[in-house]
Design a protein around this nucleic acid. Structure first.
Lengths: 116, 116
DNA sequence: CGATAATGATACGGCCCCGTAACGATCCGG
DNA sequence: CCGGATCGTTACGGGGCCGTATCATTATCG
């Protein structure tokens, strides 16, 4: 349970987004961010279909997001050996670092907030 | 000053992003979000050049963002009558509502967070 | 005045994402 | 064994955003 006022929420959101813009690297879309965090916060295993249902989007959205985030080294894919139709999405070191970095940004900006 | 743990920060970020994905409408980019919130949180007047400098991006980025957000009715533009080179960016009712809606999302999700 | 600077907009080529529809591969039930 | 269901991927047409370079308009200053 975390108490936060509307004005604080907006300032927090803005500051972190400014940080993300300045971070030349990561320019993930809203969808990609939601996918990445779901992979790193929810219990494995993760599948394309599962993520699509979880986010309320179509499967190609997940496939493409995994393609692009895979190029960035944020996630990786592996065929499920027991049901070769499935693909298991796996975490990577780079992905874990990116998620951790995001957490740092948010907590740091939150700490700076006045009570207004 | 707002105390928030890294795990809470990530869960908050994820939940709000999931909400944004499900909100069929707004699919603003990170840059657009930063621009919108800057316009609505910082004191006017706002200019293209000022926003570009504030965000550390080039002017065309701002122009294009204003184009697309203008189509969505989130902001509007007006020539500065005292220096006709300048364009003054103005807030709109729809934009204010969108910002307020975002604040609601963040505060609501924050309130749901456990202490983990 | 005229030259220079400053502002925002536009043109271009490139890349990424979207939704729909179709596809190959794999599993499963009769 | 084979037809149908399920999985993830790919193809297609369309649209958006990017960075660089350039532009027209307006202001400034000698």
């Amino acid at each position: 349970m975390l108490e936060i006022k509307p004005t604080q929420a907006l300032r927090l959101w803005r500051e972190v987004h400014l940080d993300l813009v300045r971070d030349t690297q990561a320019d993930l879309s809203v969808r990609q961010t939601a996918i990445l965090l779901t992979i790193y916060l929810e219990l494995p295993p993760h599948t394309v279909r599962g993520l699509a249902a979880r986010l309320g989007v179509t499967k190609p959205v997940i496939t493409r997001a995994l393609d692009s985030m895979g190029k960035l080294g944020l996630v990786s894919r592996k065929r499920d050996e027991y049901d070769k139709r499935n693909v298991v999405i796996q975490r990577t070191v780079a992905g874990a670092l990116a998620v951790e970095h995001l957490a740092d940004l948010v907590t740091a900006r939150a700490r700076e907030l006045g009570s207004a």
